[in-house]
Simulated assay, not measured.
Amino acid sequence: MNAFPLVSVIVPNYNYAESLDLCLRSILDQTYPNIELVMVDDCSTDQSVAVAEALGVRVLSTGTNGGCGTARNVGAAHTSGELICYVDSDLALAPEAIATAVSILRAEPTVGAVCGIQDPEPLLHDTLVSRYRGLQYHYWSISSEGDISFLFPAVCMIRRSVYDEVGPFNPALRQTEEVDYGYRLTRRHRMRLTSEVRGRHDHDHELRGLLRKLFHRGRLRIPLYARARRFGKGFETASRAWGSLVAFLSLPALAAPLLLGGWWALLPALLFGASLVCDAGMYRFVLRRQGPLFLLGFVVLQFMVNVTITAGVASGAVQWLLSRPFRELYDASFPIDGNRQWKSA
Score class of each variant (00 low, 15 high):
6 L>S: 08
7 V>C: 13
8 S>L: 07
8 S>Y: 03
9 V>S: 13
10 I>Q: 10
10 I>N: 07
13 N>I: 02
16 Y>G: 12
24 L>F: 01
25 R>G: 08
28 L>M: 13
30 Q>N: 08
32 Y>D: 06
35 I>G: 10
37 L>F: 04
39 M>Y: 11
44 S>K: 02
45 T>I: 13
46 D>Q: 06
50 A>R: 13
51 V>C: 09
53 E>T: 12
58 R>A: 08
62 T>R: 06
71 A>T: 02
72 R>D: 00
74 V>Q: 05
77 A>M: 11
77 A>K: 01
78 H>G: 06
81 G>R: 07
82 E>Y: 03
83 L>P: 06
91 L>E: 05
92 A>N: 07
96 E>P: 04
101 A>S: 03
101 A>M: 06
108 E>L: 09
109 P>C: 04
110 T>V: 09
114 V>Y: 02
117 I>H: 04
121 E>L: 03
125 H>F: 08
126 D>M: 08
126 D>R: 14
127 T>Y: 11
131 R>V: 11
133 R>C: 05
133 R>T: 11
136 Q>E: 15
140 W>H: 12
153 P>Y: 05
154 A>N: 11
156 C>A: 12
158 I>N: 05
163 Y>F: 14
169 F>E: 01
172 A>L: 12
174 R>Y: 01
174 R>D: 06
186 T>N: 09
189 H>S: 00
195 S>D: 01
197 V>E: 06
200 R>L: 01
201 H>C: 01
203 H>P: 08
205 H>W: 15
211 L>F: 07
214 L>F: 07
218 G>M: 00
224 L>Q: 14
225 Y>Q: 12
232 G>S: 15
233 K>L: 14
237 T>F: 00
239 S>W: 13
243 G>R: 03
246 V>G: 08
251 L>V: 15
251 L>M: 06
252 P>Q: 06
252 P>N: 01
261 G>K: 00
262 G>Q: 10
268 P>W: 06
269 A>W: 15
269 A>Q: 06
291 G>Y: 01
293 L>W: 14
294 F>C: 00
297 G>E: 02
298 F>G: 00
299 V>W: 04
302 Q>D: 15
304 M>V: 05
306 N>Q: 12
316 G>F: 04
317 A>N: 02
318 V>H: 00
318 V>L: 15
324 R>I: 11
326 F>T: 05
329 L>T: 13
333 S>W: 01
334 F>M: 02
335 P>Y: 01
335 P>K: 03
339 N>L: 12
344 S>G: 05
